[in-house]
Amino acid sequence: MDVYYAYNYATAGWMFLQSIPLIASPTMLITLLSPEVRETTPLEDYFSRSLGLAIIVIGVLTVLLTGSVPLTASFSDPDGALEDPAAPYALPTLVVTGTYQSAVAFFCYMMWNETGNFGFGISTITSTSLAAMAVWCVLFASTDGRISRKTGADKRTSGFPFKNVEADKKRAGKKGL
């Protein structure tokens, strides 16, 4: 579960890092992206800062909805007795943020191929890493394993495509007795 929490905090941190230039200096971004140096229009300024704030909110919601930060049900419950430890929105939030990271990685990779800009390369590597972590968490950290008390093996495994010859020998030996 440590990888799951690391993914949540890394996603929120990466979103926060991306939002800083959008909020702090839209003029700098327009200067970097535009062939001519000019001031931002009020509409560009509004959209840049709104997008930056929205990215921060999505990052905060990622941390809160996945159960990374324990929340109480009400202000009158300081003990946390009404707290839901299962975090019912953890898996849907993980899937949505993983899809987001995959889409951003794809977009940045396409822009990196087109422009060769170093910033798109760094974004490609970071978003791809976060998307891979999300896929890993969905596959391996989203359900509790069903561990056998007798053998210590996971009961959800099967013999496909490889046979477990040793287990078959043991079963055949028990049936013969």
Rank of each mutant, 00 (worst) to 15 (best):
A86K: 14
Y89V: 02
I125Q: 05
S148R: 06
G98R: 00
K155Y: 03
I147D: 07
A12C: 09
Y5I: 05
T41P: 05
K174N: 10
T143F: 07
R146F: 12
A24H: 10
S34H: 02
P85G: 07
L64N: 06
V96F: 12
P26N: 01
A24V: 11
R156F: 02
V104G: 00
P26I: 00
F106P: 00
L33K: 10
S74G: 12
A172H: 11
R146C: 10
T40D: 05
V96K: 01
A10E: 00
Y100D: 03
M1R: 03
L17G: 07
Y89P: 01
L64P: 04
A132Y: 07
I30A: 10
G80F: 06
D144V: 12
F140I: 04
S123H: 04
F120V: 02
T128E: 01
A12L: 06
L177W: 14
Y46L: 15
A81G: 14
P92G: 08
A10T: 03
V104K: 03
L94A: 00
M110L: 15
Y5A: 07
S142D: 12
E36T: 09
V69H: 07
A81S: 15
C108N: 03
A132S: 13
F47G: 10
S142P: 06
Y46F: 15
W14A: 13
R38E: 11
D45W: 06
L65T: 04
A167P: 00
L71D: 05
E166D: 13
S148D: 15
T11I: 02
G176W: 11
T126M: 15
T11H: 07
P35I: 09
L139M: 14
A6P: 00
S50M: 15
L94W: 01
Q18M: 14
G119C: 08
M15T: 02
A73S: 14
F162A: 00
L61F: 13
T41S: 06
K175H: 04
G13R: 02
W112P: 05
E36N: 08
S158K: 01
I147P: 09
